[in-house]
Amino acid sequence: MKNQTVILRTQSIGKYFYEPIRFKVLDDVSFEAYAGEFLTLVGKSGSGKSTLLYCLSTMDTAYEGELFIEGQKVTGKKTDELAAIRGKSIGFVFQFHYLLPEFSCLKNVMIPALKLGKYSHREVEERAYQKLDMLGLKEQALKPASKLSGGQQQRVSIARALINDPKIILCDEPTGNLDSKNAQNVFDIFKQLCAEMGQTIIAVTHDNDFAKNSDRTIELADGKIISQDKEFGSSDISS
């Protein structure tokens, strides 16, 4: 077993939707995610993957059970505290890029860091350039976000997710809108982040190759975990 620091843990998370009728979307979901792990969430459409991801994101607080991030219980905290936790510890990548159209790519990447206020404006700018460079976007930095291709925009949104060096990066179908080349590119970046930066990635995906190549895959069906194969750090045993 490798060094297994638990970075995120859920304790019997359950959630109901009441519209149009009451039904249980998530049922007794308990798992742990480790530092440096590349974790994928799969399952049929409607199985509750996105719903679970939003619970993990701290943006959805209407669930039962408990959520721990970096050893700290976040369930029950106030919304402003949760916003601060997100700013510091969680990065997001969605299927859509959600870049602010009036701002340059660079500014879009800088905004979460300026909000966090940990670094000076100049340092933030430097770091944003670094992240964009890492994603091969240095030349696009000063262009308005709306003037980029879909793949470039998605990479800018990844740079934005990385700017505060979050421990956790949550992704909902991050490659859903990308062609296979761009998808592979994003996958490689994620791989590298886990390996080199020790960041934990939890990604919802429909892409089988993407899931297969991740460290571990959790499969959901009707809101329940039905398999957590390829134990993280135990791949050498199973081979």
């Binding site: 994101s57 943006m59 916003a83 997100r86 979460p112």
Partner: peptide
């Protein structure tokens, strides 16, 4: 609304 959502996701509190 999209911009507000992403700002809130990336750490902006309601009062911001």
């Amino acid at each position: 609304l999209d911009d507000i959502a992403i700002l809130k996701a990336t750490g902006f509190a309601g009062r911001d």
